[in-house]
Design a protein around this nucleic acid. Structure first.
Length: 1151
RNA sequence: AGUCCCGUAGCUCAGCUGGUUAGAGCGCUACACUGAUAAUGUAGAGGUCCCCAGUUCAAGUCUGGGCGGGACUACCA
């Protein structure tokens, strides 16, 4: 046990970071924080796995600080905290960076590089920055269990993912379908949105656009359109891709959009007709001048076309009307050619009616499915249904279609000219730029057939393939899906039980996402990822979903028996042996897995579906996969075991994970376990630069976390990030803020500790004295203890509610405002010199308790300094057995120690002191000059009582001898009266203005009448209103003739008359101050004793003599001499008052 | 385009269920204090609480509509 508190020369948080880390590593503190909680309830945290193929940034410090705070807090609350680290290792970014570093493209895979080598390169690439990540984790003080991190490419991890897929498969929730995806016919591949968003992909192109006329079919549904006419009725719809018109199967109207039916002529054929379009877009097509005019004079070919609005409809009224197929090349199977409603329809451009071709638009496909509308498809030679455009981007050549299909569904005469033509000229190298496009030819055909209303060139933004530079098509591609829509209701229900921080993300962003859920597209056509474990026969009639390596091994054996495979590529693997070595024998990735050909029950070959699965499924499965469940660790998933690690109590990630990790965790847990995956969640905002811009390496505004921690230490960085903005707000990161935190909070706390250590060491305080009972401690001590208990309560509640910002701000406020700036400042004299009295012990014990509690409260946010502080305190006193604050228990508070009345009193003292100091300054009276008295008007007994209780504190603080309370009976106090809106408002409502006016007119006499009779009558308009005392607030305003300050309710007058006696005392104090400064400048120890010699001066001699003992006591002087002459060089010139100069010598005594 | 967050002093942020002089810190200026001293105190300057409309006796606070910044998702005839 050390017997002295460690004192420091300066605060070096960067060094503290290193020292504390060293101690943690030597003591294995992290593991102790878990083992010492053996048998206690668990607190489960899930680490969202980062990808180590990129360097960590400053925002990771923010995100990980949040995670760390609650894990440390819960540890201190006695929980055994689970937090297994993990790595996300699959996915496109890995592939892209491999391709970049090997200087290859996707096309080269299997050509320039074998798939095996590519696979190996990915495996290496993904762990590229592992060391940097581990180092950041270490130096920032993020405690996460790195002993055995989960790695998503590990075969055991993949095995659990397969098992989960099989659970979902067995529930009938996995199916094969198609979605409309960006597809590059030139490259023959689908594109991800990531690829599409690469710079330069979206380009402005000029295309032929068409407004087509769709002729309504007259029947019961549409009869209302023919009121008073037999003319044909057409719907107008615009498209920028006329080549999709042959695949049209529906028209969409906006349910809330107004439409009009207009009588007019077709501008190309001159034929009369009735057309329907959005009312607001009418004047895009018609000149207002021509309304209702010139029908008789109209000649086909006239530029100006007369029109007349006949009627108006809501979009919903038009729904259900059928129309004739626009281009009769291929007949659809099933329902088609109907007007339907779609929320996405706008009146921004076009006609307010949208042409729907379900095979070439994502919106189109979705809305068509909702309304039971069929896509327009053709059957190829293999009997597969295909879109009318083939994968080379051309209208399906007739010879490639099934003969039976052509016979029954295709109008070969009409289709003939277009079959085999590319829909974009760019797809055929033989076509030059000027060659007519399909779009043009279709438009010309429509014009001729009275089916086109307007054909024009239009510039629009269209995506291009980043590899071939040629336009992309939206095209139906095969995909595997998880039918999340089937569990939507349950997901919504379970989501309502999750505590979201902030709540709005849960109900808003995430809730809305769930409400609009579509099936989860699981397929990815890539190389580096978890393979989809589904094998199928070629005709798709039989399939198997594999859920474990054991199952796979058995199936492989069967296939070998059937002669489909010669060797087992996973030879040597021992099912049931969960060791790493056993699983290292095999590789479940491509290309190895694709060598597996299985046998179906009917004896056919089954091949693996070539897709990989969405990497989000990997990370979303971590609650199970991280423990290789259910092949290992089954007990951890049994709630009855008390060791359960599912679901998580807490997760935290950036708000950008809402549709990513948050969703996949939730979806998988719902489908597999009918449970939430996490109970509490913080979705944190972004870290921006100080100007509010996103940080990026390119802009050079990214902050290097390693550098920041090395320079400032992790604590102030963490403290700044947590207290400056709520976690879910974006943080504008400014390194100046970190410095401010360091100075303001850590500097003050450090000073407070150093102050304590300095004196405690002088007095040999080590908390070995008996604890002084609270009621025997002075007011000031009880006050700070009360505040401390309030603080413990508030901070505990804040952590409990996942509000770290509130916790940090409260701690900081307590330390800087109350502990340092008031308690220590006022208590300084109690520590300095004098006996080792009960009061002194109380002062030490109180300050010690505060520091110790603060160390514990701040430990989750600033783990390094907190531990240092705790360690330094505890090392001397051995009050607690723990060697680290992170092993200690979180402080508890005692409601009985919270004394609100006392807190109020001290608030009065603080306010009064500050007012009096302000008055002194105004009058230029320095604080060392004692003054005779202050006067305080008293409005009620309670105030007087409270003021009385703290008057000594105030008087000492402001150096005034006494306080005089002024009762209002003297009539010298000027008062102010204000209406109490809170009580009057609800009673009188509209009359408030008049009442306020009446009260404002109150004279001093009216006010004192009200005070005495406790009521007053006023007039508000014609009404008499009786006011009670509660309806007004009376405040003092002035004491005429005195120097007065008024703040809020309180008024204080200062007596600024200085008597000779006061003046002499002031001089004495001035000397004390000068001598103390000399002591310090001379480098004397705090305890050194001295002799003082002062040169005589008529203005000061009396004062010095009179207060000689006082001066000596304060400055630890054995003797004080006044001398006539002082020529010694060591004498210091001092100015005691304006124009009063003298000399002093201070000599240290040797003893 | 949809959803969500944010908008209060030069900067970073408080402001509880609406209640009448809108606060703090930093920065700036001046002064003071000090055996905590690269600390501290006091004062001053600094605000159309993004804008508009509404509800109300009363709006920074509630409602609606805009504007600006940010994020995510989707991609449009």
């Amino acid at each position: 046990m050390a017997n002295r508190f460690q004192e420091y020369k300066q605060l070096d948080l960067s060094q503290i970071n290193k020292d504390v880390l060293k101690r943690w590593e030597e003591d294995d503190t992290f593991h102790k924080s878990i083992t010492t909680r053996e048998g206690r309830p668990t607190f489960v945290f899930y680490e969202g796995p980062p990808s180590a193929n990129g360097m960590p940034g400053i925002h990771h410090v923010m995100a990980r600080a949040i995670k760390d705070i609650f894990c440390r807090y819960k540890t201190m609350k006695g929980f055994r905290v689970h937090r297994k680290a993990g790595w996300d290792t699959h996915g496109l970014p890995v592939e892209l960076s491999v391709e970049k570093s090997l200087e290859i493209t996707k096309d080269d895979i299997g050509k320039k590089i074998t798939v095996e080598d590519y696979n190996a390169a990915c495996r290496k690439e993904v762990m590229r920055y592992t060391r940097e990540w581990e180092e950041l984790t270490r130096i920032m003080g993020y405690w996460v269990n790195m002993d055995d991190p989960y790695i998503t490419y590990d075969n055991r991890y993949i095995e659990t993912v397969w098992w989960l897929l099989k659970q979902i498969y067995n529930k009938g929730l996995i199916y094969k379908g198609y979605t409309i995806q960006p597809y590059s016919p030139a490259a023959g591949t689908g594109l991800s949105s990531h690829e599409l968003n690469q710079p330069g992909c979206y380009r402005d192109v000029k295309d032929t656009t068409a407004v087509a006329q769709f002729k309504a079919i007259r029947n019961e549904k549409s009869e209302f359109l023919y009121e008073g006419t037999d003319s044909d009725v057409f719907f107008l719809a615009w498209t920028t891709t006329p080549w999709t018109l042959p695949s049209n199967t529906a028209l969409a109207v906006g349910p809330n959009i107004r439409y009009v039916k207009v009588r007019t002529f077709n501008p190309y054929t001159g034929m009369p007709g009735r057309i329907i379009l959005a009312k607001d877009l009418l004047h895009v097509y018609f000149d207002e001048e021509m309304e209702g005019k010139g029908f008789d004079e109209y000649q086909p070919g006239d530029k100006k076309i007369p029109y007349e609005i006949l009627s108006e409809y809501a979009g919903t009224e038009l729904a259900g009307v059928q129309y004739e197929q626009l281009i009769e090349w291929v007949k659809p199977k099933g329902k088609a050619f109907e007007v339907i409603t779609g929320d996405f329809v706008t009146i921004e451009d076009g006609t307010g009616i949208v042409h729907i071709s379900p095979t070439f638009g994502a919106d189109d496909d979705r809305v068509a499915k909702q309304h039971g509308i069929s896509p327009l498809v053709v059957e190829d030679k293999d009997g597969k249904m295909q879109a009318l455009v083939d994968k080379k981007g051309r209208f399906f050549p007739t010879q490639n279609l099934s003969e039976a299909f052509v016979k029954e569904y295709v109008n070969t005469e009409k289709y003939h000219d277009f079959a085999g033509r590319p829909v974009k000229n760019a797809y055929d190298d033989k076509l030059d730029e000027d060659a007519p496009t399909v779009d043009i030819d279709i438009s010309v055909m429509l014009k001729r057939e009275n089916k086109a209303f307007r054909i024009e060139k239009h510039v629009h933004n269209y995506p291009h393939c980043w590899r071939t530079d040629k336009p992309v098509l939206y095209y139906p591609l095969d995909s595997w899906f998880i039918k999340t829509t089937a569990v939507k209701e349950r997901m919504v229900e379970l989501n309502n039980t999750i505590n979201w921080k902030p709540q709005s993300t849960g109900t808003g962003r995430f809730g809305n996402w769930l409400e609009n859920l579509v099936d989860w597209n699981l397929s990815r056509s890539r190389f580096w990822g978890t393979p989809l474990p589904i094998w199928r026969t070629e005709d798709g009639s039989e399939e198997i979903c594999i859920g474990s390596t054991e199952e796979l091994t058995k199936e492989i054996e069967k296939a070998i028996e059937a002669g489909f495979m010669e060797v087992n590529p996973y030879e040597g693997f021992k099912p049931g042996d969960n060791s790493k070595d056993n699983y290292d024998i095999i590789d479940l990735h491509k290309p190895y897995i694709d060598k597996v050909v299985l046998v179906s029950p009917s004896g056919q070959k089954m091949f693996r579906e070539p897709d990989l699965i969405d990497v989000w499924f990997d990370s979303g499965s971590m609650p199970f996969s991280q423990n290789h469940y259910p092949f290992q660790n089954k007990d951890k998933y049994d709630p009855a075991s008390g060791k359960g690690v599912f679901p998580a109590d807490f997760i935290a990630e950036g708000v950008d994970q809402t549709r990513g990790w948050f969703f996949t965790l939730h979806a998988i847990a719902t489908m597999v376990s009918d449970s939430v995956a996490f109970k509490n969640i913080i979705s944190n905002g972004l870290v921006l630069d100080k100007k509010g811009n996103k940080m990026s390496k390119r802009l050079g505004n990214a902050v290097d976390p390693f550098n920041a921690i090395e320079t400032h230490g992790s604590d102030p960085l963490r403290w700044y990030m947590i207290t400056n903005a709520q976690p879910w707000d974006n943080l504008k990161f400014d390194i100046a803020g970190v410095e401010e935190v360091k100075r303001k909070f850590f500097g003050t706390l450090y000073n407070t500790y150093n102050f304590f250590a300095l004196y405690a060491n002088v007095d040999g305080f080590n908390y070995s004295d008996e604890e002084i009972p609270l009621n025997e401690r002075p007011e000031l001590d009880r006050w700070i203890i009360s505040l401390l208990n309030s603080l413990v309560k508030e901070v505990g509640e804040s952590y409990e509610n996942y509000e770290p910002t509130r916790a940090g701000r409260a701690i900081s406020d307590f330390v800087t405002e109350n502990l340092s700036n008031w308690f220590v400042r006022l208590s300084r004299k109690r520590y300095w010199g004098g006996e080792y009295s009960k009061d002194k012990i109380s002062a030490y014990q109180t300050l010690y308790s505060c520091l110790e509690a603060v160390a514990k409260l701040m430990a989750p946010i600033a783990p390094f300094y907190a531990d240092m502080l705790y360690f330094d305190l505890n090392k001397v006193t051995q009050k607690e057995a723990d060697q680290s604050v992170h092993l200690a228990d979180f402080p508890s508070f005692d409601e009985k120690l919270i004394d609100k009345d006392l807190e109020e009193k001290m608030a009065i003292a603080q306010k009064a002191s500050s007012m009096i100091l302000a008055l002194r300054r105004k009058e230029k009276l320095k604080v060392r000059q004692p003054l005779a008295k202050i006067m305080v008007p008293v409005l009620n007994p309670r105030f007087k009582e409270q003021f009385e209780a703290v008057k000594d504190i105030i008087l000492t603080e402001v150096n005034v001898k006494e306080v005089e309370f002024l009762a209002d009976t003297t009539g010298v106090i000027k008062k102010k009266i204000k209406p109490n809106f809170k009580t009057l408002g609800p009673k009188y409502g509209k009359q408030m203005k008049q009442i306020a006016g009446a009260i404002a007119k109150f004279s001093q006499e009216d006010i004192s009448n009200l005070e005495q009779t406790e009521q007053a009558e006023i007039r508000a308009g014609d009404n008499k209103i009786v006011l009670s005392k509660e309806d007004v607030e009376i405040q003092t305003e002035d004491i005429p003739g005195w120097t007065v300050a008024t703040v809020g309710q309180m008024t204080i007058a200062l007596d600024i008359h200085i008597t000779e006696e006061l003046k002499q005392e002031g001089i004495a104090r001035e000397f004390i101050n000068k001598i103390q400064n000399l002591r310090k400048d001379s480098g004397f120890e705090v305890t050194d004793r001295i002799n003082i010699t002062i040169l005589k001066h008529s203005e000061i001699d009396d004062a010095v003599l009179k207060h000689k003992d006082y001066i000596c006591a304060q400055t630890l002087a054995n003797d004080l001499q006044l001398v006539d002459k002082l020529d010694d060089d060591s004498a210091s010139e001092v100015e005691i008052d304006k124009g009063v100069d003298t000399k002093i010598i201070v000599e240290k005594l040797n003893n």
